[in-house]
Simulated scan of single mutants.
Amino acid sequence: MAEDINRLKVVLALKKRTNKWLATELNVNPTTVSKWCTNTTQPDLYTLSRIAKLLEIDIKMLLNSNDEL
């Protein structure tokens, strides 16, 4: 089974933001953000960096690791 690579869904919930909000901010289809949140696909590094800036967090918070938030 594939490992979840990003924690976007968790971080969006912590920041009280929605998939739709992120899609609008990035000018991407909401389905794309949904796929990122379910780890079906992954954003590229440039997009991941943009997401981190929009959410005002360190990019490391978006990556799945053994570290706690």
Rank of each mutant, 00 (worst) to 15 (best):
M61C: 09
A23T: 01
L48K: 04
W36N: 02
R50W: 06
D44E: 14
A52Q: 09
L12T: 03
A2C: 07
N64Y: 13
K9S: 09
I59N: 06
V11W: 01
K15L: 00
I5W: 06
T18F: 00
K16E: 12
M61F: 07
M61G: 04
R17Q: 07
K53R: 15
R17Y: 02
R7D: 03
K20R: 15
L26W: 05
C37M: 02
N66F: 12
V33S: 04
I5G: 02
D67Q: 14
N66C: 13
K35D: 13
A13G: 03
R50D: 09
P30Q: 14
W21Q: 02
K15Q: 08
I5N: 03
T38S: 15
E56P: 06
I51F: 01
S34A: 15
E68W: 10
N66W: 13
P30H: 08
K35W: 12
I5S: 01
N19E: 14
D44F: 04
S65G: 10
I57N: 08
K35V: 02
I59L: 09
P30L: 02
K60Y: 11
L69N: 13
T18V: 03
S65M: 03
C37T: 03
V11R: 04
Y46F: 15
K9Q: 10
L14Q: 08
W36D: 04
P43G: 05
E3M: 13
K9V: 00
I51V: 08
E3N: 11
L48I: 02
V28D: 07
L48N: 04
Y46R: 14
L55C: 03
K60I: 11
P43I: 02
W36A: 01
D67P: 05
T47P: 06
N6H: 08
M1W: 10
R17V: 02
N6W: 01
L69Q: 14
R50C: 12
P30N: 13
V11N: 03
V11M: 04
K16R: 12
R7T: 04
S34G: 14
L55P: 02
L45W: 13
I51G: 00
T41K: 10
K53C: 11
N19I: 07
T31S: 15
I51D: 05
K60F: 09
T41F: 11
T24G: 01
T32S: 12
K16Y: 04
D4N: 12
C37H: 00
Q42C: 11
K20T: 10
I5L: 09
R7F: 00
